[in-house]
Amino acid sequence: MKGVLLVNLGSPDSTQPKDVKKYLGEFLMDERVIDLPLWLRTFIVKGIILNTRPKKSAAAYQKIWWKEGSPLIVLSERLQAKVQEQSEIPVGLAMRYGSPSIQQGLTDLYERGVREVLLVPLYPQFAMATTETIVVLAEELRKKHFPDMKITDVPAFYNQPEYISALSNSIQDYLSDKDYDHLLFSYHGVPERHIRKSDITKSHCKIDGSCCNTPSKAHEFCYRHQCYQTTKNVIEKLGLDKDKVSTSFQSRLGVDPWLQPYTDRTIVNKAEKEGIKKLAIVTPAFVSDCLETLEEIAMEGKHEFLEAGGEEFHTVPCINDNDEWVGVIAKWIREFNN
């Protein structure tokens, strides 16, 4: 019997600092998130970050928490329910960090008789800290607990026409009655070293402004290329003016160089240096609205833009449980089930 497991990032169980600390500990101790030697990762995460960051992060989560719970979890559950309505086989839901865990998700499917799973990491672009960590963990769990189960994973779908259509239409629908001067595509940042580590050619990625536009096998696992290509695809789909669209990267951590330009600086520069008065932002690295979109962009980003002299700030919602997006996943499932 076949089944499906949708996997998103995850969320703390509550906005209490102890729950946020537990979640951050699991997230940041992942060797594909902070890819440092165990002793150094442990020192940084458990010795420094978990002693300083949980209270601040808890306060941020409190700003965006819904009555039903974590927005990311609630939106993921809505997506699962809608996809299940259009699918003949079981559709499960799991989180890479927090609950429900991937092990629990696989267990639930296994107990329903599922022996062949379509694993759907809910990330359009490939990255070590997203798609790869999900696929690797799922395979480790399969070998240990479900040796007679087969797992097939959905690769990065940033270039899939159906996804680009769903994303583009959601952007167009939201902005149809909005007035804006510039559209900024903000993607979650990653350390530059992650780009080089993911380069299967070991020579192509130089992060020099040209390698992402030069055809290469490296692009199959290059997060930076896939982000810029997503922006390009939407520009072409919607016929946007290239001069009125740009790309940036948010949520950097630590002192090592991360992908640039940085979103927070870009937001300020758009107002202060370029004189942009009306800014719209879309966040296509996420399929579900979460802390990074609802607090970091919609709240903090808006504050920074207005403080810098901007006048209107629009945050385009993620595709969440958008009906067209649901249809895209349902199509993948039908193809898998045939």
Rank of each mutant, 00 (worst) to 15 (best):
M1E: 10
K2F: 04
V4H: 03
V4F: 07
V7F: 06
N8W: 06
Q16D: 14
Q16L: 15
K18R: 15
D19E: 13
V20P: 10
L24H: 10
M29Q: 13
M29L: 14
D30I: 08
V33D: 08
L36R: 01
P37C: 00
V45N: 03
K46W: 07
R53Q: 04
P54M: 05
K56D: 05
K67G: 00
E68H: 02
G69L: 10
I73K: 15
V74W: 06
E85D: 11
G92S: 11
L93I: 12
Q103S: 14
T107H: 07
L122V: 07
Y123Q: 08
Q125N: 14
M128R: 14
E139Y: 07
E139P: 03
P147A: 00
P147E: 00
M149S: 02
P155T: 04
A156V: 02
A156N: 08
F157I: 02
N159C: 02
E162H: 00
I164M: 03
I164W: 02
I164Q: 06
I164E: 04
S165V: 00
S168C: 01
Q172F: 00
S176N: 01
L184F: 08
S186V: 07
R193M: 04
R196C: 04
I200L: 11
I200M: 11
C205R: 09
A218C: 12
H219G: 12
E220P: 01
Y223P: 12
C227Y: 14
Q229E: 15
T230I: 09
G239E: 02
K244W: 12
Q250W: 12
W258Q: 08
P261M: 15
Y262C: 10
D264M: 14
I267W: 13
V268I: 15
K270V: 07
K277R: 15
T283L: 04
C290D: 13
E292W: 10
E296M: 04
I297Q: 12
E300D: 14
E307R: 14
A308F: 11
G310F: 11
E312Y: 01
H314D: 01
T315N: 06
C318E: 09
I319Y: 07
N320M: 05
V326E: 01
I329Q: 02
A330D: 03
W332E: 05
I333A: 03
I333F: 05
